[in-house]
Design a binder for these strands. Structure first.
Lengths: 132, 132
DNA sequence: ATCGAACTTTAGACTTAGTCTAATCACGTG
DNA sequence: CACGTGATTAGACTAAGTCTAAAGTTCGAT
């Protein structure tokens, strides 16, 4: 029983190849980066399949899609609640553990039924080289 | 002395038309929506000018560009720090005043030099009609 | 084994957001 | 009024993402 089957996904060769990379990465790849990474191992996979597979994984709860960068949606396999830090110099996205910061009084907000929230931080990673 | 001149921007007719709409809106428009709204009053304005003008306003500190929606960047003339709520049903974005929620311990984060942060919430607006 | 239905993959056309370019236009100064 | 700087324009271009119609797989029922 694979992780894919546990989530009701037929494990085709292409889907397994995408899963092998995207479910364990921390680099917050865009769809096109996933395509490139997976092509390195499975050169015959098509772009449409990668997009379909990523959308399927999101729908089935294996992956989160995040709109943090200006230019594209990125994917994150870390499904526990967490925050994000965006490096303004490199564009790199880093996970920040849920309990490192606290958000208070959010339950008190009137007029909104909040399903989910996170803190989005921008700045520079200390010690990181420019344009990594 | 107009608001544009105060920010070092030559006030051409097109820029004033864009400013008249975008600096007082609360609907968090995408660039193409700005184009459509402004065209309603100044039909001869071009797409490139609207994009140039919006980018200029952001650069000059009149406007914030936000990557919150999956499909496009939106603009917000509210320059004070504040948070955002995204309605999952309608896609509408609402401002949430800075002091309605508090974020704690963010200074204690090691390894990151944080220039800016906000809480991004998702859910549904109470009492809002679907697909507003 | 093999038929067929249902599902998956594919290449490429298509759409949409956004940028770039080269030509034209507007305007203040000498 | 000529000139130079800066603004505007249409349209070409790029990149992200979706859609389509055809071809390939899988798998259960026979």
């Amino acid at each position: 029983m694979t992780i894919l089957q546990e989530h009701g996904i037929q494990p085709s060769a292409q889907r397994v190849a995408v899963a092998d990379y995207v479910l364990q990465t921390i680099e917050h790849p865009s769809a096109d980066l996933v395509w490139n990474r997976v092509k390195a191992r499975v050169p015959y996979i098509s772009r449409a399949t990668v997009y379909n597979t990523l959308n399927l994984f999101v729908e089935k709860g294996l992956l989160q899609a995040l709109a943090l960068a200006e230019d594209s949606v990125v994917f994150d396999p870390k499904m526990e609640r967490h925050h994000h830090f965006v490096d303004e110099r490199t564009g790199a996205i880093h996970d920040v553990a849920w309990d490192k910061v606290q958000v208070c009084n959010i339950e008190g907000l009137k007029g909104f039924e909040i399903h989910d929230y996170q803190v989005v931080m921008r700045g520079v990673r200390k010690g990181a080289r420019r344009r990594a």
